[in-house]
Amino acid sequence: MKLGAVLLFALALLTVIPGSSIAWEPSKPIEFVVPAGTGGGADQMARLIAGLADKHKLSPRPLIVVNKSGGAGAEGFLDVKGKKGEAHTIIITLSNLFTTPLHNNLPFNWRDYTPIARLALDEFILWVNSETPYKTAKEYLAAVKDKQCKERQGGQCLMGGTGSAQEDQILTIQLEQAIAGAKFTYVPFKGGGEVCVNLVGKHVDSTVNNPIECASHWKAGRVRPLAVFDTARLTVAEWKDIPTVKEALGVDVSYLMLRGIFGAPGMPKEAVDWYVAFLRKVGETPEWKKYMDDGALKPAFAAGAEYVKWVEENERLHKDLMGKGGLLKK
């Protein structure tokens, strides 16, 4: 019976005999792990890559997106960690590559994985509801300091963000530490889209959403961007007029979120080379470029030593920021 099954499987798969063995090429479907839920920024990007690979025939075998969002992404990271030497498993990372293990003392670290490439960096913007009188970040933070958020208990302003001890909260704490006397009450939500809608509905007073999460509400005149958490202004058309935090408040608070790809531990060198070339090709498609522009993402392709160096620095930065904010595991 087993033999019968073998024969039938073989028959069904005749079309997919692996190609030549000169350079490495995927010989089976690539498992593309997303350590976040369906519909979020990382998930969107992963599915876009999978779709573009299919549309432009960039990969001989399909990429299969698998969401493993449990434990703030720990489920996905730990799963990939267990696949030593596997050339057909990659993972898209966001800041939870750093924050999750630091906050909960979980046994994984970016050094466990094979760095492949940094695709882009995501920006953060300080938003308020457009019906509030605050036209500048300075006005808003003055209100925060003086506890002027009238609808709230004790005038304490509410800052909405995604998750706890993750990038949004880190940014909030950074802002509090930079501006003496400013204190927010941080309200965690499940996803970025939900956060911005709660701002539109005036359930929170401000958010630090990624540009794309609030873009449509901004265009509809419901929310107002006050400052970009970056050292320079955004370069994409309509986002150009938003001042940086430095310009608006005179303090240095910046944060960029990694959108990068890692491979399973100990992935063969030839496979890494293939993925780097593959992702480079994805980056050149018009659809990818449009996606980057629409989301005001910062194109920042990097691979090899450059990528590793950046990740190293960022890990140090997160440890530092989270330590200051009291978010490290005690």
């Binding site: 039938l8 499987f9 069904a12 692996p18």
Partner: peptide, 30 residues
């Protein structure tokens, strides 16, 4: 034979949902 084969086609081929695979599938390049 037919039932697992149909399951295979539906999940791996059609819906691209990977299921746990063993030596046989590995041997076949999956």
């Amino acid at each position: 034979i037919l039932f697992p084969l149909v399951t295979f086609l539906v999940f791996e081929k059609w819906f691209l949902v990977p299921m746990p695979k063993g030596p046989l599938e590995a041997w076949l390049g999956y």
